[in-house]
Design a protein around this nucleic acid. Sequence first.
RNA 1: GACCCCAUCGUCUAAUGGUUAGGACAUCAGGUUUUCAUCCUGAAAACCGGAGUUCGACUCUCCGUGGGGUCGCCA
Length: 517
Amino acid sequence: MAVENFIGEVRVRIAPSPTGYLHIGTARTALFNYLFAKKEQGSFVLRIEDTDVARSNYEYEKDLIENLKWLGIEWSEGPYKQSERLAIYEKYLKKLLNEDKAYYCFCSEEELEDQRQYLLSIGKAPCYSGKCAHLSQEKVKKYCIEGKPSVIRFRVPAKKKEFNDLIRGKLEFDTSLIGDIVIAKNLTAPLYNFAVVVDDFEMKISHIIRGEDHISNTPKQILIQEALEFPRPKYAHLPLILGQNHSKLSKRHGTTAISEYRKVGYLPEALVNFMAFLGWNPGTEREIYSLASLIKEFSLEKVQKSGAIFNIKRLDFLNSFYIRQKSLEKLTELCLPYLIEQGLINPIFKSEQYPPAYGGMEIKQSYQISETKEEISLDCLQKIILIYQERLKKLSEISELTDFFFKDKLKYDRSLLKWQEMTEKEIIKALDRSEKLLSKIKPEQWNKENLENVLLPEAENFAKKIKKEAGNRGYLLWPLRVALSNKKASASPFEIAEILGKEKTIKRIKEARELLK
RNA sequence: GACCCCAUCGUCUAAUGGUUAGGACAUCAGGUUUUCAUCCUGAAAACCGGAGUUCGACUCUCCGUGGGGUCGCCA
């Protein structure tokens, strides 16, 4: 395709408007632009399209920037803001006006709306009638002096227009169906279709890679380019991300903001890998890609034409994959905020005094269990995270999975202690047996391996004794595990007991036994 | 409604005129396992329809059908 034929510097851009949080669709468009720029060793410009003063919001702008960075999608230029470039648009607006390629329109919004409805009702394209297209100079001057509300319209030439799309090939339009479009509210209030054209020219954008929803804007923008005698950039329209009902992904399909995914504990690696494969693939069977490896493989030729449905299950799979890849240190660092947020643990700061020669004082961060005020070492927290690493789909799940480590007394229904067809008496027997065996283990030998060595053989025996059912270790182990974790599903009792320590382990077994009285 | 775009398993997709139509997620079954998860093995699962071109079409053409996008003084 034409991509290889391109001569000159590749310059692409992402141009979000700060009227909402960074949307996953915007992020994906940004990603594709970024990958293309990196692959072609070009530039990637970030431009904030905030011409709509009423809807633009600084909070959204911050969100856009922050989350793009978080994803690792770094721009090489900008952010430019359209609101700071008004003089540039004004210059070109005047040029069009002077050359009579644009004109003032004084039609009222109601009038226009009625017209639109009428045209729609008779099955015609709802385009502007051209009522003000040939107003005399005097009339325009008079209206302006009177202060009659007006907008600036671009004279859309009626012709067949075609352009080549790098993804879709030749696209054709009949511009007589468009009608004269509004390009500015006034000289200092340009509108999207106009501002984009000016900026893409001023910023020397070579390739416009954007969503398919912009296909119908392209002929309008090309016409404005031609009126201004700008060169035409190359276009590539990406397929849309679709919701479960196959329509353009929007809030009613669920979460669309990147910040939300971040908040519940999706990793940027997972999101990037996931988004890249929505409408693109390398043509091989490899599915796991980092941002860096994506850059190597990316090409517009491999971009799909049809929309891609957002499948959260796949994101979850990727996320749990990347969670499993994390080093324990890193994963712990990522998980701790969730434990703190849930009020399970608190960070505490201890200062240690040193002689002035050694720097005076050092602040050390540590943690305490919120409920008991007991200090808990980072080492211990890491052990907890470790045994749940392979069970985590999202980081936020860590708190409900591990909360029992941070509670003094567990609450659960006694029926949870029952494994298969056990009677209460048998459960008591099982707990007593566990307690007795565990009591014998010396605190210094209290580790997973020893616990297994002691309990596993006994679990075999116990099954035989109770039910004459060899091999069913659950009779001993299930009640123990529930006593320690109060959960249907958890890590093994050995892993849990090791972390809990002998004292707490025995205490929890006793408490479970109390429940059954 | 008009204009435009699109069409392979439920989902993301491979195949670029000749394959038992491949992979991944999800699903189901089995193994490992006290449970959950991980891991391993296996199963089920697709070329929208009709014409044409061709010795031969998932692949090319046309026509249907279906889905989507756009029709703002939003971007």
